[in-house]
């Protein structure tokens, strides 16, 4: 199995791509023909992977957009579903919740991640290497392990509550199945995405820089603020952008938390399509989510390009 079967649309696009490349080649003068043929051949090499991408990713996305404006039989149905969905409060609320959770998660990850990275880099302790390895491993664990653990530990019938029940006044914690639970779980899971790039940056800072800063009279806080953090700013901005995007798109953690009143866009897509089988509405929500995600992703790419390009140009 080398490629997924092509849809007719993908085949058309591939043919169109071939045609575009071909006409481009023939427009050149004869002297450049050989070089052109070679560049044509290298471009042709890109066609098979692009065809696969089109078939399994771009076409389904296009179909989703189409579904939001079509009937179940495949005919154009107008923008009724759109106006209906856009006027409903649910979509607006979901957008707000999604962005709010992503923002809280990003802030939490940046704070915790910066603290961990600075500590692990500059105040090493005997277990710090194990901690770094663990942080790296967690990224490849399934995301739902954190909400699962939160449920066991802090859930209504969890360890913490049964321990607290024995205390006078029987205090009670109940945050897991609500927004704080989601945010804490996402912070725990996404923090390594901030720590890892920061560790790489901090590993590059020569020790002499910190020593000299100290000998010039700077205390640890001034050294942190004036020497360490300025160096980490591009990496920090990039990883914050990545965490925001991942948190916006996160589904497994919210699903596992079982927070019924935390309805983000992915959750809304899931309920509309799988639970209530309202596929056109689900498609509208998916389009909204898609637009939002792509916008954030575009900003993230631009940010990364500017930060890395800026430092490279200045270097």
């Amino acid at each position: 199995m080398t490629a997924a079967p092509e849809t007719p649309r993908a085949a058309t696009m591939r043919a169109r791509a071939r045609w575009a490349v071909g006409s481009h080649g023939s427009a050149r003068v004869a002297g450049a023909e050989r070089r052109d043929r070679r560049s044509l051949r290298t471009l042709l090499w890109a066609v098979p992977p692009l065809a696969v991408l089109t078939a399994i990713f771009l076409v389904p996305l296009a179909e989703t957009v189409w579904q939001s404006v079509s009937t179940t039989s495949g005919a154009f149905a107008g923008f009724g579903t759109w106006s209906q969905a856009l006027s409903s409060a649910a979509l607006g609320r979901a957008v707000g919740t999604t962005l709010w959770i992503a923002l809280l998660t990003t802030c939490g990850c940046v704070l915790v991640g910066t603290f961990l990275a600075v500590g692990l880099s500059f105040v090493p302790f005997s277990g710090s290497r194990v901690a770094v390895r663990l942080l790296e491993a967690v990224v490849s664990f399934p995301s739902f392990i954190i909400p699962l653990a939160f449920g066991i530990l802090y859930g209504r019938a969890g360890v913490l509550n049964s321990a607290l029940a024995g205390l006078p006044g029987s205090p009670h914690v109940d945050f897991v199945n609500d927004l704080p639970g989601v945010v804490f779980a996402e912070i725990a899971y996404f923090t390594p995405f901030v720590v890892r790039p920061l560790l790489a940056v901090f590993g590059q800072i020569p020790r002499e820089l910190l020593d000299v800063s100290g000998s010039l009279g700077a205390g640890p806080l001034m050294t942190l603020r004036r020497v360490i953090l300025p160096d980490a700013r591009p990496a920090l901005a990039a990883s914050a952008g990545l965490v925001f995007l991942l948190a916006m798109n996160e589904f497994g953690i919210i699903m596992f938390t079982g927070a019924k009143n935390v309805v983000t866009l992915p959750m809304l897509v899931y309920t509309k399509s799988i639970v209530t089988f309202d596929l056109p509405s689900a498609a509208v929500v998916a389009c909204a989510q898609l637009a939002l995600s792509l916008a954030v992703y575009g900003l993230y790419r631009a940010l990364v390009r500017r930060l890395s390009g800026g430092s490279r140009a200045a270097a």
């Binding site: 020569p206 002499e208 820089l209 000299v212 000998s215 010039l216 009279g217 700077a218 205390g219």
Partner: peptide
């Protein structure tokens, strides 16, 4: 920070 010594290192830092 409390010694008030001027230090110049190899790679300038």
């Amino acid at each position: 920070a409390e010694r008030g010594i001027g230090v110049v290192v190899q790679q300038y830092a």
